[in-house]
Amino acid sequence: MNKTIGFIGSGNMGSAMIGGITSSNLVSPENIIVADLNEKQLDKVKEIYGVNITTDNLKIAKKCDIIVLSIKPHIYPMVIEQIKNDIKEEAIIVVIAAGKDIEDTQAAFGRKVKVVKVMPNTPAMVGEGMSAISPSKEVTKEELEEIISIFESFGKAEVVSRNLMDAVTAVSGSSPAYVYMFIEALADGAVLEGMPRNMAYKFAAQAVLGSAKMVLETGLHPGELKDNVCSPGGTTIEAVATLEEKGFRHAVLAAMEKCADKSREMSK
C-alpha cells in the first residue's frame, strides 16, 4: 500500500494494529507515524516496530493519508479540534472508539470528511482480531479495500451496515471478556478436580481456541459440532444438561443484550 498511515494514540489497540501492519509488510515502518503525549510509550513503539514518532498531532494531520484515532472516546473532541483544519483533503479518518459514529465525527470536523467506523477487538494483539468495518459514503471502493487490508493484517474483517454496530460490540468487541470468564471458570473447575492452576489454564484456553477453529474451518453449525462430542449417556451430555439447567444460554443472551443497549446509549 502506497499510503502514509498515522496513529493518534499508541495504547493497546493502536500498538496491536501497528504490529499487524508492519509484520505483514502491508506498509513499511517509515510510512507510519505515531503520535502520543506519553513519550515512554512512544519510545517503546519505535523500538519494537521502527516507526516514526511524534508528540505533535498536527504532524499526523499534515502528512498522513489515513489517520487512525486510537484514543479514548472522551478525548475525540479535543483531538479533532486540534487537527480538523490541517488534514489532507482526501484523508480517511478511522474511528475505533465505542460510541463514536460517522455522523458525530463528520460534525466534529465541520464537513463531510471521509470516515470509516471500525469495531476491532483486543485479540488483534495476537493476530487474531475480528473487526467490523462501516464506511461513510464519501469513501471510495478502492479506499475501503485499503482499510479492509489494514484490519485483515491482524485478523479477520467484515464490512457491515452501521445499524449492526451495536450487535458487533456485543458479539465480538466486548465478547473476549466473556470468553476469558469462561476460560477462568473452566480452569477453576479443573483446579477443583485437583489439576494445578497453570496446567488448568493451558487446557482450558487451548480447548476454547481449538473449538473456535473448528467452527471457522469446518463450516459446520456449532450445534452439530456440540452433538458430535455428546455421546449417549456420556460425560459431555451430562455437563451440557447442567449448563442448560443453570441458564447458560440465557445468561449469555442477556449479557449481550445489555452490552448492545449500553452501546446504543453511548452513541446518543
Results as ranks from 00 to 15, higher is better:
257 E>I: 12
251 A>H: 05
222 P>S: 00
176 P>C: 02
38 N>Q: 01
214 M>T: 03
22 T>S: 08
220 L>A: 04
103 E>M: 12
214 M>F: 04
45 V>Y: 02
216 L>H: 08
38 N>M: 02
190 A>S: 10
122 T>H: 04
74 H>F: 14
139 V>Q: 09
3 K>L: 15
87 I>R: 07
256 M>H: 08
2 N>A: 02
10 S>I: 04
182 F>W: 11
152 E>C: 13
255 A>K: 13
168 V>G: 12
179 V>C: 09
72 K>L: 02
123 P>V: 06
6 G>V: 07
158 E>K: 15
234 G>E: 12
136 S>L: 07
247 G>N: 07
209 L>S: 09
156 K>D: 12
37 L>M: 08
81 E>K: 15
171 V>G: 07
60 I>L: 10
98 A>Y: 07
67 I>R: 05
229 V>I: 14
196 P>E: 05
104 D>F: 15
132 A>Q: 05
79 V>L: 02
81 E>H: 14
181 M>N: 11
202 K>A: 13
77 P>W: 06
65 D>L: 12
31 N>T: 09
12 N>A: 13
142 E>L: 01
239 A>N: 11
61 A>N: 09
191 V>G: 04
266 M>T: 10
51 V>D: 03
15 S>W: 03
219 G>Q: 00
81 E>V: 06
41 Q>M: 08
89 E>D: 15
152 E>P: 11
187 A>C: 00
110 G>F: 06
153 S>L: 07
216 L>A: 13
116 V>A: 03
